[in-house]
Amino acid sequence: MNRLQRLFASGKKGLLSIYYTAGYPTLNSTIDIAEALEKAGADFLEIGFPYSDPMADGPTIQQSSQTALDNGMNLNVLFDQLGALRKRVSIPVILMGYANPMIQYGVERFCKKAAEVGVDGIIVPDLPMHEYEQLYSKYFNENNLSNIILVTPQTSADRIHKIDELSDCFIYLLSSSSITGKSLDVNDIVDTYFRRIEDMHLKNPTIVGFGIANKTSYQKACAHHHGAIVGSAFVKYLGATENYLDGISDFIRQFKE
């Protein structure tokens, strides 16, 4: 098993993952942030590789992606930086981004490089499931990389079961069909959605993302699922805080304590 699979096999609940964009706020901040997040208590990380047309992302992450691109971040630079990842970080790491840069780089090459630097999983929101299954799953499997697939409130039961069949780690449960950065509205509709997924008794754990910005939304997600992902709130923190490394422990503490 890779690190991610071992983490979920442990049965630990209340997992906290943090998303941030590689190359933001500065080109060379990627590994420093990862190390600080592990020390602060994050259970696993999602490092976004920036793209010029991030259609699922709200203004905060879009802006971070554009800044990262302006800083000079690309997949070649990112993989060079991640060469030092496993000297400083031991928790599971996922790369998250869009299909276009991955395909331009070459999916087989991308998977090999990701495995070489110690990445455990990949999230590509706009990669069609049938394309993954028919064209690319062999590259993921050969390199022991978990492909994490997204589910929305509108995803049919049949498709959810298919995703569960194709998954070997966890399922990324979007709290809504909105873009990133929208606060999770803790209401009866969300509660019913979370319970519907819970009642399906999927073989893979589920982690909630999109809209997790405070302890209330984090605890709401964890009440029905194995944990939650904080993205826009952390990216916003990075952009608004000059000495951002020094405050990461306090940022994590607001969710974990």
Rank of each mutant, 00 (worst) to 15 (best):
A42H: 02
L7K: 12
S183K: 12
L184V: 06
G23T: 13
I212E: 07
H201C: 09
T60F: 01
E38L: 15
D164N: 15
E133F: 12
I248F: 05
K220D: 02
L150M: 15
Q154Y: 05
I171L: 10
S10Y: 03
T241G: 09
E46Y: 05
G97L: 11
D57G: 09
Q154R: 13
P50L: 08
K138S: 14
N187P: 09
V190I: 05
K12D: 04
Y172I: 02
Y218G: 09
P128N: 11
D246M: 02
A114M: 11
G121H: 05
K203L: 04
L150D: 10
P205N: 06
H161W: 06
S65F: 00
T30W: 11
L82G: 03
I148C: 05
N187H: 08
C169N: 13
P101I: 07
D191I: 06
A157V: 15
E142N: 10
I229P: 10
E131C: 01
I197G: 00
E242I: 09
K112D: 06
M200D: 04
S175C: 11
R86M: 06
I197Y: 02
D70P: 00
G97C: 11
Y51E: 05
E108T: 08
V186L: 10
L127A: 06
Q5N: 12
K220Y: 09
D70Q: 14
R195M: 13
Y136Q: 05
L238Y: 06
I248C: 04
Q104I: 01
F255R: 05
I163E: 01
S175Q: 08
A68P: 00
I207S: 13
L37G: 05
D199S: 14
G181M: 08
I61K: 04
S52D: 04
S17T: 15
T241R: 14
D164W: 06
G23E: 07
E257S: 12
E131A: 11
F140I: 10
Y98N: 06
L150T: 01
L45Q: 06
K236M: 01
I123D: 12
E133N: 13
I189T: 15
I229W: 14
P25Y: 10
V151N: 10
E108I: 12
I103S: 02
S65M: 15
M200P: 09
Y132H: 15
F234G: 08
Y132C: 07
Q134K: 15
Q5P: 03
P92D: 00
L238Q: 07
Y105A: 05
F140R: 10
D188V: 13
Y244V: 04
Q81M: 14
K215A: 12
R3C: 01
F79D: 02
Q254W: 00
I149N: 07
V230Q: 08
G231N: 07
P50V: 09
V190C: 14
K236A: 11
I160G: 01
A22H: 03
T60C: 03
Q104Y: 01
Q104P: 00
G211L: 12
N76F: 09
N28D: 14
S178M: 04
G83S: 15
A223M: 07
L37M: 08
M102K: 04
A240D: 10
A56D: 02
N100A: 09
E198A: 13
D250K: 10
N71G: 08
D120M: 05
S10F: 10
K39Y: 02
Y172V: 02
R86C: 05
P92K: 04
S65Y: 03
F251I: 06
P25H: 12
V230Y: 05
